[in-house]
C-alpha cells in the first residue's frame, strides 16, 4: 500500500501529509517506508498494550481468587459428661486370724482402681463407696465400720466403710482426667466375731457432674 492509496481512503491528516514539500521530492519513497514502519510500530504497540491489559486483568482476577475470596467452615464437637470406673479384682477376702496376734487383718489383695472422668473445667467429679449393711453370715454380723482402707495415687483417699453414709474415696480437682490408684483394705479383728463366712458388697459410684 502506497501513499496514494492511503490518500484515496480520504482519512484525515493524510492530505496534509501529502502536501508536505518533502513528500513531493525524490525522497517520497523513503517517507512512505517510514510511514509504514510507523504504522507497523503503532500496531505492535497496540497489540502489546492489549496483551498487557489482558494479562493484568487476568492477574487481578487470579489475585482476587487467591487473597480476597473467603469461605468459612464451622466445626462443632460435643463433649458430654462421662464417667467410667473399673476396679480389679472385684472381690477381696480376709483370712481367719487370731485377734491376739493380728489385731487387724490385711485383705488377700490390693484393689486397683481406674477412674475416667469428663466434666466441666469448673466442676469436679466425685467417687463414693456405699455399703448397705454389715458383713453377714446367717444372722451373725461383723460391723462394716471395722473395714477401712488406705489409698495410693492421686486423687484417691483413705477411709472407713459406713453403712449409713457413703464415704468419699477420692478428692478430685476440677475438670476432666484419667486417674489410677490402689486401695488396700484392712479389717479390725475381734474375739467377739462368731465363726462363719461373712460377706458384704460395696458399691463405688463415680459421678461426673
Amino acid at each position: 500500500m502506497n501513499l496514494n492509496e492511503y490518500k484515496s481512503t480520504g482519512r484525515p491528516g493524510w492530505s496534509k501529509f501529502s502536501e508536505n514539500p518533502l513528500c513531493q521530492s525524490g525522497r517520497q519513497t523513503t517517507s512512505v517506508k517510514k510511514e509504514e514502519i510507523m504504522k507497523n510500530s503503532t500496531g505492535s504497540a497496540l497489540k502489546l498494550f492489549m496483551v498487557c491489559a489482558a494479562m493484568l486483568t487476568f492477574a487481578l482476577m487470579m489475585g482476587n481468587n487467591a487473597f480476597a475470596a473467603t469461605q468459612t467452615l464451622t466445626v462443632n464437637a460435643s463433649v458430654a459428661s462421662r464417667a467410667e470406673l473399673t476396679i480389679a479384682p472385684n472381690s477381696i477376702s480376709f483370712a481367719d486370724s487370731s485377734p491376739t496376734t493380728s489385731p487387724t487383718i490385711n485383705a488377700n489383695s490390693t484393689v486397683a482402681v481406674t477412674a475416667n472422668v469428663r466434666t466441666a473445667s469448673n466442676s469436679k467429679a466425685t467417687l463414693v463407696a456405699a455399703v448397705s449393711g454389715d458383713l453377714t453370715s446367717g444372722s451373725d454380723t461383723i460391723p462394716i465400720s471395722n473395714i477401712s482402707w488406705t489409698a495410693s495415687g492421686t486423687p484417691f483417699i483413705a477411709g472407713t466403710l459406713n453403712k449409713t453414709t457413703a464415704q468419699s474415696a477420692a478428692s478430685f480437682s476440677n475438670g476432666s482426667g484419667s486417674y489410677s490408684g490402689t486401695y488396700s483394705f484392712t479389717m479390725v479383728n475381734s474375739w467377739s466375731y462368731n465363726t462363719g463366712s461373712y460377706a458384704a458388697t460395696v458399691t463405688y459410684t463415680l459421678t461426673a457432674p
Binding site: 458430654a80 470406673l85 472381690s91 477376702s93 463415680l206 459421678t207
Partner: peptide, 27 residues
C-alpha cells in the same frame, strides 16, 4: 437437646465384694 445432653451428670459404678472368714479359735 444438645446443650442438655452435655449438662447431664454421668455416673459409673463398680462393686467390690468383701469376704471374711472367721474360724473357731480359743486362747
Amino acid at each position: 437437646l444438645m446443650v442438655n445432653s452435655a449438662t447431664f451428670a454421668a455416673t459409673g459404678t463398680a462393686t467390690l465384694t468383701i469376704n471374711a472368714t472367721v474360724a473357731s479359735r480359743a486362747e
